[in-house]
């Protein structure tokens, strides 16, 4: 297992995202000897350069990555740069496939070539799919069925599978962790779920009420940091123990909702998207539950690792 004392340089991909910034801050505050190079193709909203954190805006091409891998001797790669599905136009699709699939392969190959000690990849629970016949709880060995109902999620599943195949293939050379967190929410994260939970008059299904696990961004940052030294090679679901129904979650954030049957919502989505861009698969995830099993990770980080339960996370989201 990697010791944090022996980690000096970290490459953090997806640095413009809220979770990446939070994780970088957590790591550098707790371990001041560590230097982080954060890269992203997006423009950050704030100044990210701090004492031990350097930000570089770059396109995710092989050449650019080769350059940074040569320039810095990375001990660890944190890949939080999966591109989301918020924009559904064709140009975004091509960019997304290139980034999520080809980009990830390039990064993994370079990590191996440049003797990186550990790679941590952030996947998502979306890979399991939101299906009516999902069991409770879904463990890490469950088939990845997201693209059965949502073909647009095939790149997310493929990216996860590229990483896990690569992980087992190279397990003797490099430590690799694939994390599949539940819905991450928090004031710094502007993902679809956080926006949905805090948007007034968002449609709420009247005919379905799936259960959800919500992970606070701070806890996710802590998991990423602790995974460096405490979690061995493998695939891990990340979720707190408690669950909450979607209706209760909306109630907790105290925003008014418009009750709509799902079949109407599927039609209305075409209009709503002009105002609020959200991924097509999202409707499916507010229809059926996808509750993941967190036991594998808890064996390594402990039973009471998470600071916030779902209700507290929602309270904090509301306060933002």
């Amino acid at each position: 297992m990697v010791d944090l004392k022996n980690i000096n340089n970290i490459l953090l991909i997806g640095m413009a995202g809220g979770l990446a910034q939070l994780t970088a801050n957590l790591i550098t505050i707790k371990h001041p000897h560590i230097k982080i190079l954060g890269v992203d193709s997006r423009k950050p909203t704030t100044d990210l350069d701090k004492n031990n954190i350097e930000f570089r805006r770059m396109r995710y091409t092989r050449g650019n990555f080769e350059k940074v891998f040569r320039e810095y001797k990375f001990d660890l790669v944190l890949h939080l740069g999966r591109m989301s599905h918020a924009n559904n136009d064709n140009a975004s699709l091509i960019k997304r496939l290139d980034l999520n699939l080809m980009g990830t392969s390039r990064i993994l190959d370079l990590a191996l070539k440049h003797n990186v000690k550990k790679v941590i990849i952030l996947s998502t629970y979306h890979v399991y799919g939101a299906l009516h016949d999902n069991p409770v709880f879904i463990d890490e060995n469950h088939p990845l069925r997201a693209s059965i109902r949502c073909p647009e999620l095939r790149d997310v599943v493929e990216m996860d599978q590229i990483c896990t195949n690569w992980m087992w293939k190279n397990k003797n050379e490099i430590e690799t962790i694939v994390l599949r967190p539940c819905s991450i929410i928090g004031p710094q994260i502007r993902n679809t779920m956080s926006q949905y939970l805090t948007t007034p008059y968002a449609p709420l299904p009247v005919d379905f009420n799936p259960m959800f696990q919500f992970l606070h961004e701070f806890d996710m940052g802590q998991v990423l940091m602790e995974s460096i030294s405490k979690v061995p090679t493998g695939i891990y679901n990340v979720a707190p123990d408690d669950v909450i129904s979607l209706k209760d979650a909306r109630r907790k954030t105290e925003v008014p909702s418009i009750p709509v049957p799902i079949f109407m919502l599927e039609q209305a989505a075409k209009v709503i998207k002009f105002i609020w861009s959200f991924p097509d698969y999202f409707i499916n995830y507010i229809k059926f539950s996808c509750i993941i099993d967190n036991n594998a990770l808890k064996k390594h980080i402990g039973d009471d690792f998470f600071r916030f339960n779902a209700r507290e996370s929602l309270e904090l989201l509301k306060m933002d």
Binding site: H132, D133, N134, P135, V136, F137, V206, D207, F208, N209, P261, I262, F263, F288
Partner: peptide
């Protein structure tokens, strides 16, 4: 579980999908 209203009403009352793991 895929029937609107019935699925969520049954789940709220305790019914679960007939799955071995459940």
């Amino acid at each position: 579980t895929s029937i609107p209203f019935i699925g969520s009403w049954a789940a709220q009352g305790g019914a679960v999908l007939g799955d071995r793991q459940n």
